[in-house]
Every structure is written in structure tokens, then in C-alpha cells.
């Protein structure tokens, strides 16, 4: 049988390209233009500083304490907040998992995520402020006074705002992973003599680790990029001058887009490093389905 030339369409279809595949193109183009290109553009721009040297911006960043200290400031906020949110989310998710009114709790907790950091910041200024209900309650029980406890316009203001918007986020993600584990696995472990603590250690924890790693990453990246609450609830000139503030100021106050891009690149790189470390360590654990051997 002499081979008639295979039409292009047939060949393309064999590789998975046909009319339906083309539907992906508009979205692809949009993201290439508005996500990939700006990143590339930003990278190139960051390598063309005002002083004309190649890595000038990066040298500048890492030699100016006002700039490089923002990394430490950001980490000092993001790491403890993420750890606390995750440590609190796991036991709460295990409690809520078998609850009848689970939806009520999840709905309440989705409120701060939906309302967003700006509104939470405004509410916190009222509520945690020196004359707010929280400190009033504290002094009512003799636990502090407006002069001794300061919860806004400092580190703790930003910290609390990251807990208030971050904990629900971490919790809801954790809950979805916890509920993804087949209840029969726990029942099986129980019939085999495992007590609650042993069930958690031998069944849930190994199956949850991959999900918790992702939860940690997403929560961390959110906390790391804190911006509005660091300005509104913190001390943006000092203790809560996080890296996103530095980038914003470079771009929109000094109009040095080149330096701003460099800071954004550094910010992205740091997030990437943490995410890669966490995700790499996750591969040490079991990663298959957690629903029991047969879905």
C-alpha cells in the first residue's frame, strides 16, 4: 500500500490538536500577554538600572539595609503567622469534620476571606484600637489597659490581621484535605486497635502531609505578600516595612520602575524558594490518593 500523504489535519489530531484544542488559545494569549510578558519585561527592566550597570539594582537592594531588611521583616511576620494558622487549623478541621453544622462554621469563616484585607483592617482599627471593644474587655477583666496594650500601628496589628484573614483560608483548605480522607480508613484503624492519637499519627498525618505542604505554601505566600494591612495596621516606615511596601514605594513614589521590578523579582524568588523547599520535602511522603485503595 503506497502511502498517500496524510493530511495535516489528521496528523495534528493525532497529537491532540483539533478545533476543540484551539479553544484554549484566547485564554493562553491573554495570560501570555498579561502574566508571562510582564514578568519577562520586569526581569529585563530590573537589569537596566538608572546607573547603567547590569546588576546595579540587585546590589543596591542587598547593600541598603532599608531595603534588604524588608526581607527579614516580611519573614518575621509570614513564617510565625503561617505556622500558627496551620497548627490551629489542623485540630479545628478534625473537630469540624464530623460536625452536623459544618456549613455554618465554614460560612462564618469564609467572611473575612471574602470581605478582604482592607475591610478587615478598617474593622480592626476600631475593634483593636485603644478605645475599641477588645481592649475595653481586657481592662474590664484587669488584663491590660489602653496604655499598656497596643494592638494596632505596630507588628501585632499586622500579625493579627494576617491571622484573621489567614486562619480561615488555611482552615478551609485543611478541611477540604481532611474530608478527602475516607472515613472507612479511620474506622478500619479503630477496629484494629488504634486509639485516636495513634490513628492521627499512623493514618491521617502521612496521608495529609502532601495537602498540608500545599496549604502551608499557599498560606505562606499570601502572608508573605501582605500589603494593605501592613500599611493600614502596621508601622509602614519601620517595624512592618515589608517587601511589598518597598516595591510599591519604588514604583509609585520614586517612579523607579527598574528598581521596583527588581524588588518584585526578589520577592517572587523568595516565595519560589520556600515553595520549592516545602514541595520537595513533600515528595518524601506518600502522594497517592487518600481515599482508600479503590476510589
Amino acid at each position: 500500500m503506497s502511502s498517500a500523504p496524510i493530511p495535516f489535519r489528521t496528523r495534528a489530531a493525532a497529537h491532540g490538536f483539533d478545533g476543540v484544542t484551539l479553544l484554549v488559545i484566547p485564554a493562553l494569549l491573554l495570560l501570555a500577554a498579561l502574566f508571562l510578558y510582564p514578568f519577562g519585561y520586569g526581569l529585563v527592566l530590573s537589569l537596566r538600572p538608572k546607573d547603567g550597570t547590569w546588576l546595579g539594582n540587585y546590589f543596591h537592594f542587598f547593600s541598603d539595609p532599608f531595603l534588604y531588611q524588608t526581607i527579614a521583616t516580611t519573614l518575621a511576620l509570614a513564617l510565625p503567622v503561617t505556622a500558627i494558622n496551620l497548627l490551629a487549623a489542623v485540630p479545628v478541621a478534625f473537630r469540624v469534620r464530623r460536625m452536623q453544622h459544618q456549613r455554618l462554621i465554614t460560612t462564618i469563616l469564609v467572611l473575612p476571606i471574602t470581605l478582604g484585607t482592607v475591610l478587615v483592617a478598617e474593622g480592626m482599627l476600631n475593634y483593636f484600637g485603644p478605645q475599641g471593644w477588645f481592649i475595653r474587655t481586657l481592662s474590664l477583666f484587669g488584663l491590660g489597659s489602653p496604655s499598656s496594650v497596643k494592638l494596632v500601628h505596630n507588628y501585632w496589628g499586622v500579625f493579627l490581621s494576617l491571622v484573621i484573614t489567614g486562619f480561615p483560608f488555611t482552615f478551609l483548605l485543611t478541611l477540604s484535605y481532611v474530608s478527602g480522607i475516607d472515613v472507612a480508613l479511620e474506622n478500619a484503624a479503630a477496629t484494629l486497635g488504634a486509639r485516636a492519637a495513634a490513628r492521627f499519627r499512623t493514618i491521617f498525618l502521612p496521608l495529609l502531609v502532601p495537602g498540608l505542604a500545599i496549604t502551608f505554601c499557599l498560606s505562606f505566600v499570601q502572608a508573605y505578600s501582605v500589603f494593605p494591612s501592613a500599611v493600614l495596621l502596621g508601622a509602614p516606615a519601620g517595624p512592618t516595612r515589608v517587601i511589598s511596601i518597598a516595591a510599591y514605594e519604588a514604583a509609585f513614589e520614586q517612579y523607579d520602575y527598574s528598581l521596583a521590578s527588581a524588588i518584585a523579582m526578589i520577592m517572587g524568588a523568595f516565595q519560589l524558594i520556600v515553595v520549592v523547599i516545602v514541595l520537595m520535602s513533600r515528595s518524601l511522603f506518600y502522594r497517592g490518593p487518600a481515599a482508600g485503595a479503590k476510589g
Partner: peptide
Amino acid sequence: MVFQNYALFPH
């Protein structure tokens, strides 16, 4: 106990 979907520990 033997469960309907076996409930084997996948890990």
C-alpha cells in the same frame, strides 16, 4: 472487620 471498599491504608 472487612469493609465494603476494603479501606486499605494506601500509604
